[in-house]
């Protein structure tokens, strides 16, 4: 099946209904689109959000990443060099003990990983880091 971007967008409304049924929703966005749908185009500050990644990942399959921003309501993680840039969004509830989360992600190659936080006051923060993904030369 080949879908043009327009068709994908047109499917959007139906897609939401499908997602409610537990079927996969389409996530074919570019980094810019992903940021725009999260921030609504708002300015992004820097300095309040910390993104921790390894400088070099021995394998792109399992790269540990950590985000943290005091006062964040949610934090979105993007892998800008992946075919689909969205990775995960942490939404913090009333019993979140810190505005912090760690996970392990897949990176298709050396690239910039980005995090964007929506703060409780409605402003946005961003942070990014380059992760070099090495390709093991040998050893099966």
């Amino acid at each position: 099946m080949t879908l043009t971007r327009r068709k994908v967008l047109a499917l959007g409304a139906g897609g939401l209904a499908l997602a409610g049924l537990g079927l996969p929703a389409w996530a074919a966005e570019t980094t810019e689109e992903a940021i725009a749908s999260f921030t609504g185009g708002a300015e992004m500050g820097e300095g309040l959000l910390t993104l921790t990644t390894p400088e070099i990942a021995e394998n792109g399959n399992t790269v540990p990443v950590e985000v943290s921003a005091e006062g964040a309501a949610s934090i979105m993680l993007l892998a800008t060099g992946n075919p689909l840039p969205n990775v995960a969004t942490f939404n913090f509830g009333p019993l979140a003990g810190a505005r912090h989360g760690s996970t392990r992600i897949r990176l298709a190659g050396t690239q910039e990983v980005m995090a964007i936080a929506r703060m409780e006051d409605g402003t946005f923060q961003k942070a990014s880091a380059t992760v070099k993904v090495t390709i093991g030369g040998c050893g099966g």
Binding site: A79, A88, N91, R106
Partner: peptide, 23 residues
């Protein structure tokens, strides 16, 4: 009461792992 609610995409690794804090 909610602690954390994570939206997950295919870029999260096999055997998804999350670490976070709760009050």
């Amino acid at each position: 009461q909610n602690v954390i609610d994570v939206t997950i995409e295919p870029a999260v690794s096999t055997n998804p792992f999350f670490e976070f804090e709760a009050k």
